[in-house]
Design a protein around this nucleic acid. Structure first.
Lengths: 205, 205
DNA sequence: GCGTGTGAAACCATTCACAGCT
DNA sequence: AGCTGTGAATGGTTTCACACGC
């Protein structure tokens, strides 16, 4: 079966809130309650889950911990994926310190830059490597995913280097469309674009 | 007519690339060339534009500067919208310095925090105000949109304060669903979620 | 010939509505 | 009674394919 893209995005959101709920000691939850927390409809949640199996109990809803574990399994969060951040500018720096990543099963295993001012320095306890050594260090550290926070002009070139080293998943913060081999997945986070879309809705009021 | 959400998101992306193209002195562009730059299909671009009018010339495509101006008009970018950043943590700090915003017609007119360590300090030349004074200063500065980079626990409360002061557009970086009045628009940027979605695709390879 | 603008078709995602289980 | 799981219906978005203008 073909799973909607949107479903995957939402599963990530469900996961986070189940995580919070588990911390608070909530044991059971219905699709209706979860829906009101995450801002979706109950049937959306049930449908999303139904692509992967039946995790609930009719009459009583879902066991928070079980559902959390199932979603982790679906999203591949169990293994504690190893991530590199490439580009130690303001944004890269903010992301190394972003608690959300580690909390949810990602390990920022290495950081890179091309500037001699930064290489060799430590950022939140992580030694900044020379981007030229990416291939070797990525292999050594078992990096599977890369967060790209480099300047726009450099983004395509560094993408080539990174995908050439076997990385198949990129989270790109540079506001350009990256050309990558077909088997590489890119997710773009475009900060200014998000703001511009909002602007449209301000205009129409 | 009802304009697809996705169309609006893409228009922002077209805009940015038209901006670059104009800088480089490109005069004309076809939907096909633009498509290959932004990573979309030509017919998607033409359809997106068709919701707002006919801006091209059959046979020769679009005049870069004209199309850029039209999209600016559509997205309401002409007025140089005034934006506030609330929360001067790592991420807020990175965003004050993010060139993409100013470049594309947004003015970061004020920044706020609740910490006495930060209030009164300057960040990239902008005085950090006490969040308690939001209402007054937002009015004074003509703030129309808010970028929220506060800790998760504080997000809902601050949202209440901000929307209570008449703000109708929020770009939210806190990983929670914000409850807002119906006439307020929220766009969520969820950094960890983006990474988790990617993880799913790594798993299935 | 090249390229836009656009109805119509195909595709994908959400919502409905209800059978079935506890 | 309460809640899940899911086909069927609806709604939204993308893609196709072609008429028309330069």
């Amino acid at each position: 079966m073909n799973i909607p893209e949107r479903t995957i995005e939402r599963l990530s959101i469900y996961y986070r809130h189940l995580y919070y709920l588990a911390q608070q000691g909530t044991f059971n939850i219905s699709s209706r309650s979860l829906a009101s927390i995450v801002g979706e409809k109950p049937e959306t949640i049930r449908k999303d889950l139904s692509y992967f199996g039946s995790f609930g109990k009719t009459g009583s809803g879902y066991v928070v911990n079980d559902l959390k574990r199932e979603i982790a399994k679906i999203l591949g969060l169990e293994q504690g994926r190893r991530v590199a951040i490439v580009g130690m500018g303001n944004l890269g720096l903010a992301l190394v310190g972003y608690k959300g990543f580690e909390m949810l099963g990602f390990k920022i295993a290495a950081v890179f830059d091309n500037s001699l001012n930064k290489i060799g320095k430590k950022y939140r306890g992580r030694l900044c490597h020379n981007i030229a050594d990416f291939s070797r260090i990525a292999r050594q550290e078992g990096i599977e995913m890369v967060i790209l926070t480099v300047p726009t002009e450099a983004a395509q070139e560094i993408t080539k280097l990174v995908t050439g080293s076997g990385i198949k998943a990129l989270l790109n913060f540079a506001p350009v469309h990256l050309n990558v081999p077909k088997d590489v997945r890119v997710t773009n986070v475009d900060l200014a674009t998000a703001l511009k879309s909002l602007s449209f809705f301000v205009s129409r009021r």
